[in-house]
Design a protein around this nucleic acid. Structure first.
Length: 292
DNA sequence: GCCCAGGTGAAGC
DNA sequence: GCTTCACATGGG
C-alpha cells in the first residue's frame, strides 16, 4: 500500500471541461489548465492529459476509489451512447458534446445545490454555493500557497444556521426551503442513504416530500447525486430542446412532453438529457433573419 | 426599465 | 383538475 499526493487515471472519451461546466456541479474553479474542487472533504486538482486525467490532492491518500467513483471512470461511454434512441436530434447533440460525462456527486451536496438552483443562472448558483461553503462549511487542507477551501456544509451545519444568515448568502426565497430541508435530513426524518436503493418513482416521491423539492430538482439530485441514470430532469432548457428540436411548429403541452421524455430515451435517459441540455446552452445562436 | 434564469408552492378559477 | 402568481437576485 502506498500513500500518494497524485495519480493518473487512464480514460478515454472524457471531456473534463464540458463535464465540469455543464450545470450538473457548481463548485469547480478553472485555473489555467487545472480544475480545483473539493470532493469527499478533500481538496483536489484535476487536469486532462493525453491519456487520461491527472489528479493531485493536498494530503497523501492510499486509495483513490472515492475519486474514481465521483468521476464515474468505470462507465463505458460507448455503451451509454449505444443505448440512446437513434434520432437525429440526440445524434447531433452527442456529436457536438463529445466526451460529456455525468459525475456521481455526494447526495446531500447535490440535493442542497439544486434547491438553490431554482430560477437562477448557473453563474449565480455558483456564487451562492461558494458563499454558503465559505460561511458554513468546514475548512479543508490545501497545499501551501493555495487559497483556502471549504467543504460543502453538512445538513447538520446548515440546520444550525438562521434563515437570515442563509439569506445573507444571497439565496433569497430559497433560504427557508434549504433550512427546512436541512433540518429534516439532519434529523433523519428523510434518510438519504436509503434512497439509492428505492425504485425511481419511490425515490422521486421521497425527495419531493422535502420543502423546495419538486419533480425537477428531485430528478437532478437523483441523476447527479444518487446514481439514477434514468432520471430525466426537465428544466426550461430541456423543455426548449424538446419543443424546438423534437416538435417544431407544433403546440405540445408540457404533460405530453413529459411523457415523451419518460418513454423515448431509454435506460440512460439522464445522459441523453445532459447532452441535450449542454447542446442547447453551447450551440451557436441561430442568427435571427436580418434584412438590409 | 425589461425579460429571463437548471422551480416550487399556494392561491385562484 | 388546470393556470397564475409571488418569491430574491443579478445578468444581458
Amino acid at each position: 500500500m502506498s500513500w500518494d499526493l497524485e495519480t493518473n487515471f487512464l480514460v478515454e472519451d472524457y471531456d473534463l471541461t464540458a463535464t465540469l461546466t455543464s450545470g450538473q456541479v457548481f463548485r469547480w474553479k478553472r485555473l489555467g489548465e487545472d480544475w480545483i474542487g473539493v470532493v469527499s472533504g478533500r481538496w483536489v486538482k484535476l487536469r486532462r492529459t493525453g491519456t487520461g486525467i491527472h489528479a493531485r490532492v493536498a494530503e497523501p491518500v492510499d486509495r483513490w476509489d472515492w475519486l474514481r467513483t465521483y468521476l464515474q471512470l468505470k462507465v463505458d461511454l460507448g455503451e451509454v451512447l449505444g443505448s440512446f434512441p437513434k434520432d437525429p436530434v440526440l445524434s447531433q447533440a452527442v456529436q457536438a458534446c463529445h466526451g460529456l460525462r455525468l459525475l456521481k456527486q455526494e447526495p446531500w451536496e447535490c440535493l442542497a445545490s439544486f434547491i438553490l438552483s431554482s430560477t437562477k443562472q448557473i453563474v449565480q448558483i455558483q456564487q451562492v454555493i461558494s458563499i454558503l461553503c465559505r460561511e458554513f462549511g468546514s475548512p479543508v487542507r490545501v497545499p501551501e500557497s493555495e487559497p483556502p477551501a471549504f467543504a460543502f456544509p453538512s445538513a447538520a451545519q446548515v440546520a444550525q444556521a438562521s434563515e437570515a444568515a442563509l439569506r445573507a448568502c444571497k439565496m433569497g426565497f430559497r433560504a427557508p426551503y434549504l433550512l427546512a430541508t436541512a433540518k429534516l435530513v439532519a434529523d433523519g426524518a428523510i434518510p438519504l442513504e436509503k434512497i439509492e436503493r428505492l425504485p425511481l418513482p419511490q425515490a422521486q416521491a421521497a425527495l419531493m416530500e422535502l420543502p423546495g423539492v419538486g419533480r425537477k430538482i428531485a430528478d437532478c439530485a437523483l441523476l447527479f447525486g444518487f446514481g439514477f441514470q434514468a432520471a430525466f430532469p426537465v428544466d426550461v432548457w430541456v423543455l426548449r430542446a424538446l419543443r424546438d428540436l423534437y416538435f417544431p411548429r407544433r403546440r405540445i403541452k408540457a404533460a405530453r412532453l413529459r411523457h415523451f421524455a419518460d418513454t423515448h430515451f431509454g435506460p440512460c435517459a439522464g445522459y441523453a438529457q445532459q447532452y441535450l441540455f449542454h447542446y442547447m446552452r453551447t450551440r451557436p445562436k441561430t442568427p435571427r433573419a436580418s434584412f438590409k
